[in-house]
Write a protein that binds this DNA or RNA. Structure first.
Lengths: 148, 148
DNA sequence: ACTTCAAATGCAACAATGTTGCAATTAGAT
DNA sequence: ATCTAATTGCAACATTGTTGCATTTGAAGT
């Protein structure tokens, strides 16, 4: 029974409404991708979205255009991950608490350290800070052990 | 005055010697690329290297292999930049003091803030920390002004 | 409901970046 | 000078992203 997001007192804006609010058309492609991003616990790559859509696949090019449109319209944010793959997240919505990552230069693995995120520095006048990421690199225990 | 922080009395190791020291062959391709990386003030991409070699071009594939070999042998380090292009730097030599970067989600520009780098967290047993990077993102003053 | 038309899509073709297999070349040891 | 495994160059392929254009469609107006 899919209960349709209980609308207590606030208005639960649907993906379609959020899209129309930007002045653009609420097409199935945009709606589905936006829903996916909304429910994804982590940033999704173009390929992730393709797989997730599964049967109801969009054209590859359309997906590129939808994703870029979401970014241009401010609904999503695009970032390259450590393996230089583009990943998309809902703008603002994410609220991913800022991780600390360690990447091994030798094997490429990424570890999530559980260390406190550093405090944000003072931003220059007019700048808005949306997210901060602290990335460390070096050699992991495995590689240090095997290589020398 | 570019004093190359040589260890005063030590021998200035030539690229060829440094390559042979790893047990591999000192080929012209490797020597030229290593020299390039040594003299480059900033990390170079595959394409940068191709352009820099100019007339004396290597095969595209050979260059990929040389760069990867440099990384595998520990002479160079590979990192993706904000535009997700691989960039190579001499290992160790760099000593780029750890910057704090701010990337604008709207225009993509990268600003170097001059803020103190955060202190490194305690590393797990066996891990070696080689570099740390603190990346911030949001909207820059220009974009905040124009796009409300 | 029906029309209309710019916006959005799908397709085909292309571009950039990276990878693999293999035959020809060559650095460096003997 | 010779030998041989380590490199190289080439061709072919894979992945990821872009562009032009003909077709379809959301939603505004009738």
């Amino acid at each position: 029974m899919p209960d349709k997001t209980p609308s207590s007192t606030s208005t639960p804006i649907s993906p379609a409404e959020r899209i129309r609010a930007t002045g653009a058309r609420a097409t199935p492609a945009r709606i589905r991708v936006l829903e996916l991003l909304s429910s994804a616990p982590v940033p999704l790559s173009h390929h992730d979205v393709e797989l997730a859509l599964g049967d109801a696949t969009l054209d590859r090019v359309t997906l590129y255009r939808v994703l870029d449109w979401l970014v241009a319209s401010g609904l999503a944010v695009k970032r390259a991950d450590e393996r230089r793959v583009w990943r998309f997240t809902l703008a603002g919505g994410g609220q991913h608490h800022s991780h600390v990552h360690f990447r091994c230069d030798a094997c490429g693995r990424v570890y999530c350290l559980d260390a406190p995120a550093p405090i944000a520095p003072v931003m220059p006048e007019g700048f808005t800070l949306a997210r901060l990421e602290f990335d460390l690199s070096g050699r992991c225990a495995d590689c240090n052990r095997s290589a020398r």
